[in-house]
Design a protein around this nucleic acid. Structure first.
Lengths: 338, 338
DNA sequence: GTTTGCTTTGCACAGGTATGCAAAAGAACG
DNA sequence: CGTTCTTTTGCATACCTGTGCAAAGCAAAC
């Protein structure tokens, strides 16, 4: 068995050159003559040599590994983003080391420590926050961090979100234009900036015409809690429309309303979500929702991250990207709506 | 800025001991006295020292990184499996480096090469096959490979699947017991073992009572193709039941039937899927399906993989796990069915 | 042919850790 | 206290690559 790893020294011996020559051939932009390159590549191919990324990173100080911390993948928004992110980074020669932050808060610390052990060049957290102390630790290690779909005040952290305040305001305007009188809101987890911003934008949109939500409950981004909240709003507050803090919960709400309570959507009640995951476009839900442009959010994430990796003096950025309201069939459509 | 990385030498200096002592303190099972351990840990904590995993793997030859190759994450089965897999490996001190194999065939080769560059300890491919040459290359490098949810004849590869033949046979029996006369089958991609095995099992189940499918079309695991196939079967073959090769396609089929064609499920036509992804249990689809026990499949994957990493002489394994039929509301339930 | 300038190559070392080996320290015992 | 055995420690080296520096090669220009 050829268990033995083939190293640059083996190739050098075979080609009759020095090890550094081999190294240079595999280092883009290094000074090598054509003749040398051909000779070395021939030997390398014959032996099946490929540079050891780990050894390389030991000396260059760059691992070309990006750490991704993600809490859960049940919400379709995240696998979708993960796929895009991985593809985009792969294109730039980076790869994703994935970490699940099962618990909240406490778990994240341990996870970040492990990430640092792997000498990652950068960190992306998806729907996961960071304590100040953690942010400081990453900053001290010189590792840029981008919060994806979550915001935080810390000036050392970059972040990329959709424009949650504006988006939620658009939804408020849409529901008002539809003539709804008793509007409820099931928020995302109010411990998250995303949840809070959407609530604030939504309230602002209603307040612009002197209205306010007749009920607001926290759904914690969980199906069961969202469903329970919906039932409560129906029974206690007699809502005729609900803005649900993300699509994932909105599906649960629609399930609860249609299957358990026996209401029709949108005839009896309008439902609007947030995210526009693929499932929202499938006929079974046909959900009106505000699209988070995940493609552009990922682009911005990669851009910001790589910028800061290449040039450590770059300042952290806070980016919010506008998304359009996607009008489908789960909410009454105002007359003459364009 | 404390940009400077703190190394074991720094800790050694601070604690007044040798570098090897520090190394031993952080190596489980090494010979260290209590006093030494305390002294070193104190210094390490104070400096914020953590061992550099990359440097360590350079000398030990183990990176504690598992490469995961996955084609697409749209089918909810895979994010779910990914989450479980990552958690299980994390518990054992391993982590997942993720690679998207966008294209078929050609792309996989390049991806595997990159994986090898990272000196991964093992490879898991999810719904992705490998050419013989690739299998040989991994084998030569001494890196075990587990195919997850896909099978292949190559003796060098391990694989973990559900018992597709048996599962599909159960579905055939269920549909027959329901009194269906004109049964169709939309297969998974017939280029995949999974697709072929399910078709074979399904045909065998029907053949046991002298029946056979009135229509069989390849859905290629894609929504659009599955929907088109369903439409064609309705119009041309007048099917009264369809076994769809996985849940992801089954949702598309139900969407097409209910929304575009205007049929009722299960009154007009029965639909059965395969996988039992979370979405299958949501009321909007309420899909009868065969459960792939992803928890146990992941367990088996981790077990097999780590066994072979620890002890390279272990033989590759081919594991097929039985799953139960989950009876819900998308297919007629035979009288007295238990 | 000599000088000048540029390109290519090899040498030697660094990066952070684990580990075999021999020396040192400690424990057990008479 | 001296001896023997066991545990702990330090020294030196290896893992595989990239890169600064100086030497060597080459081509052009005089």
């Amino acid at each position: 068995m050829g268990e033995r790893k083939v190293t640059s020294l083996d190739v050098a011996a075979k080609a009759g050159v020095s090890q550094s020559a081999v190294s240079r051939v595999f280092t883009p932009g290094a000074s090598v003559s054509k003749k040398m390159a051909d000779k070395v590549r021939a030997a390398a191919d014959e032996l099946g040599y490929r540079p050891n990324v780990l050894a390389r990173s030991l000396i260059t100080g760059r691992s070309r590994i990006i750490g991704l911390v993600v809490a859960y993948l049940e919400n379709q928004f995240y696998p979708d983003a993960l796929e895009r992110l991985s593809n985009a980074l792969q294109e730039q020669g980076y790869h994703i080391l994935i970490f699940m932050a099962s618990g909240t808060g406490e778990g994240v610390g341990a996870v970040i420590d492990e990430l640092l052990d792997y000498q990652v060049d950068g960190i992306v957290t998806a729907s996961v926050g960071m304590s100040d102390e953690l942010a400081a630790r990453c900053d001290a290690a010189g590792i840029p961090v981008v919060l994806f779909n979550r915001g935080q005040d810390d000036q050392r952290l970059s972040q990329v979100t959709s424009n949650n305040v504006d988006g939620a305001r658009k939804i408020a305007e849409f529901l008002l234009a539809g003539g709804h009188q008793r509007i409820g809101h099931i928020t995302g987890w109010t411990g998250s900036s995303t949840g809070r911003d959407r609530e604030a934008g939504f309230r602002a949109g209603l307040a612009a015409v002197g209205a306010e939500p007749v009920a607001v409950l926290d759904g914690h981004y969980r199906r069961a809690e969202a469903a329970a909240a919906a039932r409560e709003m129906i029974e206690d507050a007699k809502v005729d429309a609900i803005f649900v803090g993300n699509d994932h919960m909105a599906f649960a709400v629609m399930d609860e309303l249609r299957s358990s309570i026996g209401l029709r959507v949108p005839e009896d009640i309008s439902i609007v979500g947030y995210d526009d995951v693929p499932l929202a476009g499938w006929p079974a839900y046909d959900l009106t929702t505000l699209r988070q442009p995940s493609g552009r959010m990922v682009e911005a994430t990669v851009q910001t991250l790589l910028d800061r990796i290449e040039n450590p003096d770059t300042e952290p950025q806070k980016i919010a990207i506008d998304g359009p309201l996607i009008v489908r069939g789960s909410a009454r459509i105002p007359e003459g709506w364009t």
